[in-house]
Write a protein that binds this DNA or RNA. Structure first.
Lengths: 104, 104
DNA sequence: TATATACGCAACTGATTAGTTGCGCAAATT
DNA sequence: AATTTGCGCAACTAATCAGTTGCGTATATA
C-alpha cells in the first residue's frame, strides 16, 4: 500500500473529487452523481484520500460529509518548491542572456 | 495508457529521477547507480517521463542524456492554483475571525 | 414496526504497473 | 576486426488498482 499524496492525486477521478469537495463538504452519494461510477467506487476513492489524510469525515446522522484537508495540499506545493528554484534560475539565465545581447 | 504528469509523479522513483535531472542532465546508466533497480527499470521510468513530456533526450555519441522539461512542472503548479485560492480564503476567514475577536 | 436510505466492507474481475531477464543494435575502445 | 559499453525493445511475472456486485448495519421515514 503506497498511499501517499502523489499517488492519491494520480487518479483523475480523485482529482475531480478533490476539486468538488474543495468548495464544500459532500457525501459519497452526492459525489457519485457527478461521475459515471457507482457510489461504492467513489467510496473507495474517498477511502484512499482519507488514508493519506487529504480528506476528513464528518458524520451527520446517517450521512457522512467528506471535506478537503486543504493544508495537506500544501505538501505538493512544498515539493514543487525545489523546482521553483530551478525555473527561476533558468529565467535568470535567460534574463542574463538578453542583457548580454542588449549590451552588444 | 494514462500517462499524464500526475500519474508520472505518483511513483517515488520517478520523483527521485526528476529531482536528480533537475540539477543536470544524466544518462540512464548514471541514474541507475542511484537506485536499487536495473538500468532497464530506470529506462522504463524515463520512457514514461518522456511520453508525458516531463523529460527530453539529447544524444551524445552512444550516450543519451535525459533532461528535465522544467516548464512541464509548472502544470502541477497551475493545477494547485485553484486550491491556493481556497487556502487563502480560509486564511482570510481566520483573519476576519481574529479581527472580530479583537473588536469585542 | 416495516421500509427506504446512506453508508462501509468483502470478494471478485480485468487492466495497469513496477520490476525483471534476455535479446539486438550502434558507438567507442582495444 | 574483435570486444566492450550504452542503450532501447520485447516478453514475462507478481503486485497493485479501479471498478463492480452483494452483502450487513445504522439512521431516518411511513
Amino acid at each position: 500500500m503506497r498511499r501517499d499524496i502523489f499517488q492519491a492525486i494520480a487518479d483523475p477521478t480523485r482529482r475531480a473529487i478533490i476539486a468538488l469537495i474543495a468548495v464544500h463538504a459532500m457525501t459519497p452519494s452526492a459525489l457519485a452523481e457527478h461521475f459515471d461510477s457507482t457510489r461504492q467506487g467513489i467510496s473507495k476513492h474517498l477511502k484512499i484520500l482519507t488514508e493519506c489524510q487529504l480528506v476528513k469525515q464528518e458524520q451527520q446522522g446517517r450521512e457522512i460529509y467528506y471535506q478537503l484537508e486543504i493544508d495537506k495540499m500544501k505538501e505538493i506545493d512544498n515539493w514543487l518548491e525545489q523546482f521553483r528554484k530551478v525555473w527561476e534560475t533558468r529565467f535568470q539565465q535567460l534574463d542574463d542572456l538578453l542583457l548580454t545581447i542588449n549590451m552588444k
